[in-house]
Every structure is written in C-alpha cells, then in structure tokens.
Write a protein that binds this DNA or RNA. Structure first.
Lengths: 155, 155
DNA sequence: TATTGTTATACTCTATAACTATA
DNA sequence: TATAGTTATAGAGTATAACAATA
C-alpha cells in the first residue's frame, strides 16, 4: 500500500559544502597535524614520550656531546623552549648536561643508559607508527614524496 | 709559498647528523605545520585572522544558517572548542547566532555584513598566501598531491 | 535518554623579551 | 659586544569531563 502523501524530502541531514576549505593547504595541514599528533601521543603513551621529545632523544643519540643550542637549532626549536624540554628529560634521568671542556657557558648533551634504553623501546614503537603512516599515505614512494613536499614548505 | 704545517682540520663547526629525524614524518610534519602557521599569522595580521578563524568564516559563508555543531564537525573542531571561536568572532561582529526555527537548543550561524566584508578581504589575502605556498611546493600538481597525501593521513 | 551549547581545565608546541654568566 | 643558557609570559590549537536546556 502506498503512502498517501509523498512529501518532498528536503534532506534535513544534508552534508555541508566543504569545497572551499577542502582545497586549503592551511586547513588540511592544521587538521592532519592535529590528528597525527594525537595518534602519536596515543601510540607512545606507554613510554610517556611526546613527538618533540622523541625527536630530541633521536638527535642526541646520533650527536652525543654537542651543545644544547646546536641540538635545538638542528631541530628547529628555539633555545628558550628547548631548555624546558631538556629539564623534563633530565628530571626523568634520560639525558644529562655535562660541562663542556672549552666553554663554561655551554653544556655537552648526552643520553644516560636509561635514555639509551628508552630510545631503543621508542624506536620499536616508531617502526609500528611509521608503518601505519606508510599504509595511510600509500607506500614508500608516497611517503618520500610527502616528506619532500613538507621540506619544501620550510624556510 | 706553501703553508708549513698543514694541520688536519677537525671541522669544529661540523654540521649535525640529522638523518634519523629528517626521515621522520612525525618531525617534519610538526616543523612544517609550525612554520606554516607562523607565516599565515604574519600574512593575515592586518586582518587579525587566525588559521582556524579563516576556515570558520569560509565554511559559514558557503553554508549559512547551519547549526553550530554542524559547522564545527565539518571542520573537525570539537563543540567545546568551537564555542570559544564563535564567541570571539561574534564579539567582533563578524558572525551571529540566530535562533533556529525548529529546535530551541541549536543556533543557526550566519555571517554579518562586516563578516562578509572581512571574508572578501581575507580571500584576497589567501590568494597571495596560497600562491606563495604553490611556489614553495612546486606547482599545482605538487600542491594537489600534497593535499591528497594530507587527506590520507586523516581518519 | 540523547543532543546542543556551554564552561572549565589541561596539554603540546610556538614566539618573544629580558636576564645571568661567560667568551 | 656577542653567545649559551635560562626564566617568564603569551598565544594557537587540541582533548576531556561535566553541566543546563531542550528534544
């Protein structure tokens, strides 16, 4: 039996027109970064490592004994903000600031054994995380292209 | 005349090894987003528009009268955070919350004439900004690829 | 009970200015 | 004078929990 009055359906649940915003690098970069950071924090919550902290540990491991400001500059982090990061890592006994031999102003940054150990754990966690990232992006070629494009945005 | 003692140069100003961090999507995305946001704020400082605010105005213009939570959801912004954004825009007389006809819980969001006017200005500023972005990325094809890859990171 | 808007709070990352100690 | 590290503060964005009014 047919319905008596087949009223026109005005689609009350209509999807919004997002065309302007969907084409905006500004908007997409902000969203992608936000979601990405959240996933990272979730994935590394067991290790209590934030994205910036993981980058710091990685770079120190590859460049032990360098000055605090050298590490900061290589990561694109300002000296003032880097101090707080290092305080946090040092309070967890992951890094240490040794006195530099020829310049009493500067600190030579090193990982502690605890820091080396946590970094080893973190690198295993990162392998999973970057694999998920790789899958989302669509393979190594897409990932490399993505990294290239991100670098072009710098400077 | 040759130098007498050609001492081995230990390169005191040696560049750091950034290979681990340079390959990390985590790191590059964080850096690119940060620099990009700063450039946006500088470019739009005359209009006092932040990235999120510009996206909000754009989306409202294309979807006037929609519910506050619909706009927020389409932008991937949580309701709670969106309230603060709307308060700020409304205090500047750029948007208004009208009472929705069929649901006294919800607000129908509109741009004011001032909002339309500012958005027109902002769109001109955005044209410059996205052109600079296009140049950095290396053309429209690279830009479109970048947007595609950013979208793949979502969800 | 579920949804809409709201408030409050905390967290990640960033920028800037000003200070101390050392070079 | 310049550099290394530091402190303090502000800003942009995010997440979560809880609440009142309405459906």
């Amino acid at each position: 039996m047919e319905k008596i009055s087949e009223t026109y359906e005005p689609a009350p649940d209509d999807a919004l027109d997002t065309s302007a915003v969907a084409q905006s690098v500004t908007h997409q970069l902000r969203r992608a970064h936000g979601q990405f950071t959240n996933r990272f924090l979730l994935h590394f919550s067991r290790l209590s490592l934030r994205p910036a902290e993981f980058s710091v540990l990685s770079l120190i491991a590859q460049n032990p004994g360098r000055k605090q400001s050298e590490i900061a500059a290589a990561l694109g982090i300002q000296r003032a903000n880097f101090v707080v990061l290092m305080n946090e890592l040092e309070s967890r006994c992951l890094t240490e600031r040794r006195s530099a031999p020829n310049d009493r102003r500067s600190h030579a940054i090193h990982l502690t054994p605890d820091g080396e150990s946590l970094l080893a754990d973190a690198r295993r966690a990162e392998a999973d995380f970057e694999a998920d990232c790789l899958e989302r992006l669509g393979g190594t070629r897409a990932r490399d292209q993505f990294l290239t494009l991100l670098r072009r945005l710098l400077g």
